[in-house]
Structure formats: structure tokens, C-alpha cells
């Protein structure tokens, strides 16, 4: 579904991702871990196509088509969706209006979904203005539920979310990723950045990757990698692979 080959990405003058390759098959969910500043968010933003992130080498393919230089909205329309870690505030644009613009009508459906993530009271508020960490996550989830992407990218979906809401978010992500559909029929796939791994309590991930200094240094079973990181820390975890 998603195929990344030899990707080099610069922000400003600085290369942040070096020679990165990654492949995610239909119906698969992958987890991306790695220390702060290692380039995880950069990878997601590059896949989405943000203008600050310059691909200097390599290719991104989605659903058999090269999308390396497609505009953002074209990628979104092909089924790529993302939950932002720090989305911008837009004054005067309410969450409800944005949802209506993306849903193309269907106020009932919007309200229904908003209730599911306890965001119905936020529909008339300016998008992200004064939203708490957890409210941002729920607002992002709601936007994705309406967008229904076939490839879902989530940037630390559990950070800043309290225990009660984490199960709400976890279950919603599960639905976005077709986790209620039998594995052979599952069409949606995902890439999730997580530090804590809490999100793995709500959905099974098929594969894990550890990123360090702009490269993916290690692949494997996500739970095992997480356990390793938890007991030994990133440094040792990465060192074990370097020789």
C-alpha cells in the first residue's frame, strides 16, 4: 500500500531523514518509535506532503502510484490521512464548519460522530483555539472519522490524553484501521508514532520500527521492541543493532 524507497528529506538546509525505506502492506498497522528529534514526525509530514519538507532523493509510492511530489490535497483524496501532533489554530473557522467542508454536507452524520468522541460541544468553537491536549486529539480523530482515509498516520495519539479518553481514542483508531474486520478483508492500514505503547493495548500492530538520527535502525515485533526499550532504554536498544 505504502512503499518508501531511499528517502532523503531536508528541512531548510539540513537533512533530517537519510536514506529511509519502509513498506506497509494492505491491512497492516505499523508502529514507529524512537527518541525525541529522531525524525518521526518529519517522516509523517513528508508522506503527507507538507511544503517545508523537501524530498531531495528517493520516492514515495501509494497504492501503486508515485506520490512523491503530489500536492497535499491530492494525497488526502487518494486516501492518506493524518492526526497532527500540533495542529494550527484557525481564528474564525469553527470545527463544525471545517467538518462540514470536508464531509460535503451530512450535518446529522457529523453530529453523530462528534458525540462519539465527546466533541459535540466543540463544533462551534474555533478550530484548536484553547483546546487542551486531549481535546486536540479527539478533534483530530473526529476529522479523520469523517475523512475515512485508507492509510492513517497518527502522531503520538496518546500523549496528553487522560486514562478515560485513551480507551475512547484507542477504540476509534481501531475502527479507522478496520480492526473489527477480519484480517484477510482488512483494507485500511496505518503508521502510528508512539512513545508509551499504551495504544497497543487497544489495537494490534503488525510491525514495529525504531528510528534514530533520521534512519530506521531496527524492525521487529512491536511489543518486543517496546519491552526492550522500556527495560534498556533507546541507547542500548539501538546499539544492539549497530554491529
Amino acid at each position: 500500500m505504502l512503499e518508501i524507497r531511499d528517502l532523503h528529506v531536508e528541512i531548510g538546509e539540513r537533512e533530517v531523514l537519510h536514506d529511509l525505506s519502509l513498506s506497509i502492506g494492505k491491512g497492516e498497522t505499523h508502529v514507529l518509535m524512537g527518541p525525541n528529534g529522531s525524525g518521526k514526525s518529519t517522516l509523517l509530514m513528508t508522506i503527507m506532503g507538507f511544503s517545508q519538507y523537501h524530498v531531495t532523493h528517493g520516492e514515495i509510492h501509494f497504492d501503486g502510484e508515485e506520490i512523491t511530489h503530489l500536492p497535499i490535497h491530492e494525497r488526502a483524496r487518494r486516501g492518506i490521512g493524518m492526526m497532527f501532533q500540533r495542529p494550527p489554530t484557525i481564528s474564525g473557522l469553527s470545527l463544525g464548519k471545517l467538518l462540514a467542508a470536508t464531509a460535503g454536507g451530512g450535518d446529522e452524520m457529523v453530529l453523530d460522530l462528534a458525540r462519539k468522541v465527546n466533541m459535540d460541544r466543540f463544533l462551534s468553537r474555533d478550530i484548536n483555539k484553547g483546546f487542551s491536549g486531549g481535546e486536540i486529539k479527539r478533534s483530530e480523530m473526529l476529522q479523520l472519522m469523517i475523512q475515512r482515509p485508507s492509510f492513517v498516520m497518527l502522531d503520538e495519539p496518546e500523549s496528553g490524553v487522560d486514562l478515560e479518553n485513551i480507551s475512547l481514542i484507542g477504540h476509534t483508531i481501531g475502527q479507522l484501521l478496520d480492526k473489527d474486520v477480519h484480517i484477510v478483508n482488512r483494507k485500511h492500514c496505518g503508521l502510528i508514532i508512539t512513545h508509551t505503547g499504551h495504544i497497543l493495548d487497544y489495537l494490534d500492530a503488525d510491525r514495529g520500527h525504531v528510528m534514530c538520527d533520521g534512519e530506521i535502525k531496527c524492525h521487529g515485533n512491536p511489543r518486543e521492541i517496546l519491552k526492550e526499550i522500556k527495560t534498556r532504554g533507546y541507547r542500548e536498544c539501538l546499539e544492539c543493532r549497530q554491529d
Binding site: A76, P88, I90, T102
Partner: peptide
């Protein structure tokens, strides 16, 4: 802000629609 336009583009709005949506909000 380019960041605001691109945020809306990531939800599937083309650049022109995203820009108009933000301007409409600005005037609101």
C-alpha cells in the same frame, strides 16, 4: 499562514478552497 492552508489541504481541500475558507473565518 502556510501551515493553516496545508492543514486544511491535508483534509482534502484544494489550495484555493482552503485559502477562501481561512479568509472567510478571518472576516467572521
Amino acid at each position: 499562514a502556510q501551515e493553516e492552508i496545508e492543514y486544511l489541504m491535508a483534509r482534502g481541500l484544494d489550495e484555493e478552497t482552503a485559502t477562501a475558507t481561512i479568509i472567510r473565518g478571518f472576516l467572521d
